[in-house]
Design a protein around this nucleic acid. Structure first.
Lengths: 204, 204, 204, 204
DNA sequence: AAATAACCGAGACGGTACGTCAAGTCTTGAG
DNA sequence: CTCAAGACTTGACGTACCGTCTCGGTTATTT
C-alpha cells in the first residue's frame, strides 16, 4: 500500500513537481523481498533494504509509512498469484498440482509476510487488515481459474468445496512449515490431498 | 529453555554458591506471560517484564539468553495443557468441547508464542526447535486424555484420527485468527466440527 | 577530539547530507563541562550530559567515540587560556597575578581533566596524548603574552625562566590541591612566588 | 585501611569463630597491586583482583569497604618507603640518588594511587583523606633518614629545605610523568637537581 | 526562461530497547 | 565467625534500528 500521490478519484489533478522514479519502486520491493526471505521479518532493517536497493532511506519512507507496509507491498509486488492451469477431468491431479504450488508459494514468501502480520497485529490494526486483504486476494483469485471451476462443480463435489479448500489447505501447509518445521515434501502433499481434501470434497 | 546451572547429567555435582531464587523464576515467567499477551511479542520489552516482576533486568538475562528464550519459558511454564474431560459416548460433543478449549488456548497465548517463533526462526534455529518441541508437547499430551481415547477407537473411526485432529484443528484455528482476523465464535467452531472433522473421522 | 566529518585537509569535499547542528555541539560541551566540574570524571554519565544539553545520547555518540573523548573536547572547548595582562616593570606582581589565575584555573577545570587523563592513560594512549596536547597548548599560549615577554628578558632573569615556570608552577599547584588537599590561598601563592619562583629566576 | 575486627580498645574481646586467614591478606594486596599497575585504576575490577588472588569477592569486601580502599591498602602494603641511605658530604649526589628513587617509586605505584585519589575525591572525602595520609607518610618518613638529616643542616642550606623538597620534587616528577608523558630519564633528573633543587637550597 | 514543486541521496536527530559489565550486598553450604 | 561461590540490585555503558527532519542538488511542469 504505497503512499500514493494521486487522489483516489479524478484524473485531472496533474501531478506537479518531479515524478517518482518507477525504477526505484521496483528496486525497493525487490530488495525488500530478498532481505525478507533471507533474514526474516524483524532481522530485516529498512536501512539494509535501502542499501541493497541502492536507494536512500528517505526514498523508501516517502513511499511507505512503515517497515511493515514495505513488506506488504513487496509481497504484493511479487505475487501474481498465478495459479497453475489444471485439467478439469482429473480432480486428484488438479489438487496435487495446486497444493504443490501453494506449498512452494508459502515457503518462499508468505512466511515472511506472516511474520510481519504477527509483529503488526497489536500495534497497527490497520496494517494487519492490509496484510489480510492481501492474503485474501490470492484466495479470491483462485475462483476465476480453471482450478476454481473444478471445485465449483456442484454436481459431483460437496457444495462450498472452494471455501473449504481455502480454509484448510493453506492452514495445514503453514502449520506444517512453521509449527512442525518439516518440509512439504511430496509424501506430505499426497497425504494432504488423499487423506484430507479428497475425502471432504467427495463425500456423498 | 533456562540457562541451567546443573549439568544435564550427573547428580553428584553439588550446587555451590547461593541458589537461584525460585520465587523470582515464577515472577519473571508470570510477568512475561502477562506482558506478552497484553502487547504482543515485539512490543514486549525485557525491561517491562523485569519491572512487572519486580526484578532486575540482569536477573532475567542470567536465566535466559534472549528475549525469545524468555517467551518460550513463559509459555512452557504456564501451559499445563489441561485438556477438558469428555464423555466417550458423544463424539460430536467431545469434539466441540475440545475445539472450543483449543480456540481459547490459542487466542490467549499461542499467538504470542507464534510471533516469537516467526521472529526467531531464521536467527536462532535452536530456539525455534525449542518452541516447536513445546507446541508438540501439547499435542502429545492429548493422547493420554479421555479425548485421546475417544479418537483412538479404531472400530468406528478412521484410523489415525488423533493425528489428523492434531494436524488440522490447530491449523485451521490459527489460520482463522491470524490470517482471517475473525474470532472463533461458536458458529465457526461448529462449522469446523461438522463440516471438516466429523466427516473425516466418520467416513467409510 | 570529535569524530570529524570533514577530512582534515581539502576544501573541495562538499559536505553531504544534513549538516550537524553547531548549536548542539556547544550545548553538549557546555553541559559536559558543567557536569564534569560538579561531580567529577567518573561520576559523570553520558546520559546526564545528554539530558542537561537537551540532546539525545546518540547525538553525543555520533560526535565522540567515548565518554573520555567528550571530556577532552569539553575542556578544549572552554579553555581560551586567557592569561591575564601584566605590567612589565613588576616581576613579583606579575608572577603573583599569573599564579593566582593558574590556581583558579586548575581548581575549576583541570582537576576534572586530570581525572580523565588518569582514567584513560592505559586503555587509550591516543586519548591520553590528546589530553596532553591540550594541556601543553596552554603553556605554549603563555609565551605570546605580556607575561611571557617578562619571563623572556634574558638580561635580568635566568635563561629558560619560561620553561622553568611551566614546569614548576602548575606542578606545585596541582600537588597542593590533589595530594595535599589544601586550598591555594594567598599565603600559599606568595610562598610559591617568594620562596620558589623568584629565587630561581633571579639568581645571578 | 582494612576493616579491623578488633575493637579499638580492650584486649579481652577474644575473637570468636574462624580467624581470618592472614595468607589471604597478602594474596589480595599483591594481586591488587599487580592488576593496578597493569591496567590502571578504573580498568581494575575487584572481580579480577579476586580471581588473581584465588579468593572470593566476599573475602575482599569483608576486609575493605571499597575498591578504592583496596588500592590504598595495596600501595600501603608494598611501600616500605625505604629511602636510600646517602652520604652526608655530597649534597648533589644525595639529591640525585633520592630523586632517582622517588621517580621510580612514583612511576611504579603512585600513579595508580593518584588515579584512585581522583576517582574518590568528590564521592568519598574520607577516603581521599586516607590516601593523602598515606602519601604524606612517605614524606614524613624521610625526615628520619640520612637524607633528612642532610637537608636539615641549617648552617649551609636554606632553612625549610626539607619542606621545599617534599613540595617540589614529587610535584615536578608527577607532572613530568602524567601531564608531559615523558619518562624520568637521568637527564631530566639531573636537570631537576641542578636547575631547580640545588639553586633553591644553596641560595645566598 | 524562470519559478515552483516534488524528488533524491546523505546523514543528523530524538527515541526506545538491546545485551553487557562492574560495584557492592546478600545468601547458601562447608569448615 | 570465615571462606568460596554465585545470585541479586543498581546504574551506566555503547550499539542498533526506527521514523522524522534538514540539507544540497536534480528533474519535471507551469507561468
Amino acid at each position: 500500500m504505497p503512499i500514493s500521490r494521486e487522489p483516489t478519484t479524478a484524473e485531472g489533478a496533474a501531478p506537479r513537481g518531479r515524478p517518482r522514479d518507477a525504477g526505484r519502486d521496483a528496486a525497493i520491493l525487490d530488495a525488500a523481498l530478498q532481505v525478507l526471505t533471507e533474514v526474516g521479518y524483524d532481522q530485516m532493517s529498512v536501512e539494509s533494504v535501502a542499501a541493497r536497493a541502492g536507494v536512500a532511506k528517505t526514498t523508501i519512507y516517502r513511499r511507505y509509512s512503515d517497515k511493515a507496509a514495505v513488506v506488504v507491498a513487496a509481497v504484493e509486488h511479487r505475487a501474481p498469484a498465478s495459479v497453475p492451469r489444471v485439467r478439469s477431468d482429473d480432480l486428484r491431479g488438479a489438487l496435487l498440482q495446486v497444493v504443490r504450488w501453494l506449498a512452494r508459494e508459502i515457503a518462499e514468501q508468505e512466511v515472511g509476510l506472516l511474520g510481519a502480520l504477527f509483529a503488526g497485529m497489536r500495534s497497527d490494526p490497520g496494517l494487519a487488515a492490509g496484510m489480510r486483504r492481501l492474503l485474501h486476494r490470492d484466495e479470491a483469485a483462485m475462483a476465476d481459474t480453471s482450478f476454481g471451476k473444478v471445485l465449483a462443480r456442484g454436481d459431483r463435489l460437496t457444495p462450498g468445496a472452494a471455501e473449504l479448500f481455502a480454509e484448510i489447505a493453506p492452514a495445514v501447509i503453514v502449520h506444517r512449515i512453521v509449527v512442525t518445521g518439516k518440509p512439504c515434501d511430496p509424501a506430505f502433499l499426497e497425504h494432504l490431498v488423499d487423506d484430507i481434501l479428497l475425502p471432504l470434497f467427495q463425500r456423498k
